[in-house]
């Protein structure tokens, strides 16, 4: 195993964090699953969410989302039931990219989808669609051999996760491998669970930063309220909101309501990280 250096071209993610730093605020990192609840609605929702976000995570639906809670599991099931293919994920990415040239876009999902179409093909198409980075939940640094070369070749950052169970050795390993940012999972659990104790999250983030140096650290899993987002923003470089945004799709009585609810919610989160 050898550590990968960050892509040589200046990355959009680096620009986003630099710009947020200048504005003395955290980045809002927003998540939705591609194709949820259907292609056209998903496109509209992703575009609306992009308006308020610094970084957009676009989820690639998978049949077995093992690290996700009920809200994002249901999102994957809705997207697949609506016939979402990997080509649709790239089409949606390209639509968002066309409308938002400065937004950083992260494709997020599970290993088996990119593995099935081949990591090289996947990385080439992701880059062409306008993605900046990839976050694969079930490829830890130790298994990076199956994707690192392809991602590096096509100039995509690789976001890695750290969690409360990560030892110093693992933090060092992730920092050596990751580029773009570190995604700190705030709790030992699945997406959408209740947030852990804010003070211990703060301490762990400081500890990670002391090991990782310049690499930005974003915090996610369980951020549901603007108050939580504001607290996290006080010590992290970015705040990830996922299940909370997806739940607007789950809760909506009709598709027309979703966009308004999502935009309002994203707007209040965006204000919260700016404090």
């Amino acid at each position: 195993m050898s550590a990968l250096s960050a892509p040589t071209t200046h990355s959009r993610l680096a620009d986003v964090f630099e710009s947020c730093k200048q504005q003395q605020r955290s980045a809002l990192v927003s998540y939705l699953t591609a194709g949820d609840p259907d292609f056209n609605t998903s496109k509209e929702l992703l575009l609306a969410l992009a308006e308020q976000s610094d970084i957009l995570e676009i989820g690639m639906p998978f049949s077995d989302p093992m690290a996700d809670g009920p809200v994002i599991q249901a999102a994957s099931e809705r997207a697949l039931a609506a016939g979402t293919h990997i080509a649709d994920v790239f089409k949606l990415t390209a639509s968002v990219r066309a409308a938002h040239p400065d937004l950083a876009i992260v494709l997020m999902g599970y290993a088996n989808v990119p593995y099935a179409i081949g990591f090289d093909d996947f990385a080439a198409r992701a880059k062409e669609a306008g993605a900046d980075a990839v976050l694969i939940v079930d490829i830890p640094p130790e298994e990076g051999h199956i994707c690192d070369t392809a991602l590096k070749t096509h100039g995509l950052d690789r976001i890695l996760l750290l969690s409360p169970t990560s030892t110093d050795e693992r933090i060092q390993l992730a920092c050596d491998y990751a580029s773009g940012f570190i995604y700190y999972v705030s709790l030992t659990g699945i997406t959408g669970a209740d947030m852990g104790d804010m003070q211990s999250i703060h301490q762990k983030v400081d500890h990670i930063k002391s090991i990782c140096g310049e690499l930005p650290v974003c915090v996610g899993f369980g951020v549901k309220t603007p108050a939580q987002a504001a607290q996290v923003a006080s010590f992290a470089d970015g705040v990830v909101v996922g299940s909370h945004f997806v739940s607007h799709i789950t809760d909506a009585r009709n598709k027309a309501d979703i966009r308004a609810a999502l935009s309002a919610s994203a707007s209040s989160m965006r204000k919260a990280v700016g404090v």
Partner: peptide, 8 residues
């Protein structure tokens, strides 16, 4: 091929 939380 596990989530980070389970690696340790």
């Amino acid at each position: 091929f596990a989530a980070e939380t389970l690696m340790q």
